[in-house]
Design a protein around this nucleic acid. Sequence first.
DNA 1: AGTCAATATATTTTCGAAAATTCTCTTGTT
DNA 2: AACAAGAGAATTTTCGAAAATATATTGACT
Lengths: 249, 249
Amino acid sequence: MPTLVTDPPFGRDGREIRLMPQLSAYPDTQPSLTAQVFERLRADIIDCRLQPEARLRLEELRERYGAGASPIREALMRLEVEGLVILEQNRGFRVSPISRAHLIDLTANRIEIEGLALKWAIECGGVEWEAEIIGAFHRLTRQEKSERDEPGQISEGWKKEHRAFHRALVGGCGSPILLSIQEALFDQAERYVALSIARRAVPRNDVAEHKRIMDAVIARDIGRAVEANRVHIERTTEKVLATLQALAA
Amino acid sequence: MPTLVTDPPFGRDGREIRLMPQLSAYPDTQPSLTAQVFERLRADIIDCRLQPEARLRLEELRERYGAGASPIREALMRLEVEGLVILEQNRGFRVSPISRAHLIDLTANRIEIEGLALKWAIECGGVEWEAEIIGAFHRLTRQEKSERDEPGQISEGWKKEHRAFHRALVGGCGSPILLSIQEALFDQAERYVALSIARRAVPRNDVAEHKRIMDAVIARDIGRAVEANRVHIERTTEKVLATLQALAA
DNA sequence: AGTCAATATATTTTCGAAAATTCTCTTGTT
DNA sequence: AACAAGAGAATTTTCGAAAATATATTGACT
């Protein structure tokens, strides 16, 4: 079974260049335990199965994820840099707190970062990029937002397609750095949405908002696209702020 | 259940609120081994004592930093998220490669991110912020850029003050998120400068550039400040690109 | 020679327990 | 009652070695 000749992603080390790498040297290795724990922890935090400020005791996490101390701490260290977790010296980890101030900061930054990414994408994205967006939008509209059995819940499928759509929008910007920033901020924001939903807020219908962004992007109208994106982000934040407010009261 | 809407940064846990915390509960704990290793590794990579693409073998690092596997791997995981290190599954870590493309991407992003931070800072920074800048500028100008004994080397002191000056400029923006992004990008960029210096490039005199930024900021002229900052960043990058070019040839 | 398989070596990844630190609870003192 | 000190428990941090994986080497076969 011949390996497809793809650009070898890494390892451009004189010593490592071989005419034909042994197949066994590049198996589809399953992700390391650290990587698995990282993904699960990240998802659990974003979806608020682990609540803001919840203590993350090592013993509990070992139980929950079936791993030793090392992979778990390594995953937590990554999450701390991404802002989903905080570490207090010798006092362990907890899920990052949420707050009005943080949400507002996050929103302002998302508007700017995504706006910039949109601008660059419109300036330099090609047809392939446009096609991705249109495809992603189609998949998003064909996806039920709420689960049939749990009406006040956003479906996993919808969340996935929603993320994919936003990713497609900025995907043509040509800047890996900007994309990674965008993704980190998106993750953080999702946490607030999950929280708002968990508080029985009714999911809102935002198909029109998404369509407006897409239309402006396809029309290559930077100003309109950035503006539509701003509106979309701000609407979401307003909704979340309202439920947070109601909760505090 | 966590309270949602108050803003104090940490530890807003009913149980932890005490009238007067016991002193012994908050000692000046010395940083954990992980934290120490992280700082040293980060510095070694930024200053190119660990060269781009160098393999980071666990055993060597244990030797170098006098620590066990856990702290070192934890530090490396953090650095990977920050982009200073890359991890290849089961094949270990190496220092992130450098490239023209990456430097150019970095530069474009720095111009935008720092520009935005400058804008926000000018809009909402107070007198204290202005004073910090003026102080930082003063310290920077009083610091020798080159070491007396090593003329083609940038002094540690200057690098520290230079970082502090740029930090002071954006420090008033009021956005912790934007500041953390700015810092991460600054770190990455420093690596290229260090590399260029290591290649015997003569440090350039950029006092005037810094002064131009500061004057515009103090005059609260957003356009001029952002423009001056853009010029400063681009000049640095041009210099680095030139030495990289010469190196490749 | 060149390829392949099998083996040996090197390296990363993971675990379980020891060491260090923080937290909790009791007891004694003013 | 309030506070401080100290023993004991809980938890985090770190280590050293085992398990898993990747790389290098050897030797047989074409």
